[in-house]
């Protein structure tokens, strides 16, 4: 059975490949997280305008 030691976030492996994988992980989540945050922010703004006014 193949076990993936460095595969959970915060894994302890420090090889260059593991470093690259961590960078890729951050980039990938930012790629989808930033547009999502923009959408959530716009919705929050609308809700505050509508219910907070």
């Amino acid at each position: 059975m193949t076990e993936q030691r460095s595969e959970e976030p915060g894994g302890s492996a420090t090889s260059p490949v593991a470093e690259r994988r961590r960078g890729l992980l951050v980039l990938a989540w930012l790629w989808v997280g930033l547009p999502f945050a923009y959408g959530a922010f716009e919705l929050a703004r609308k809700l505050v305008q509508l219910f907070g006014a």
Binding site: Q4, E7, G11
Partner: peptide, 9 residues
């Protein structure tokens, strides 16, 4: 060594 946490994004 692929991280499964790359699949959800």
């Amino acid at each position: 060594d692929w991280s499964r946490w790359l699949v959800p994004p």
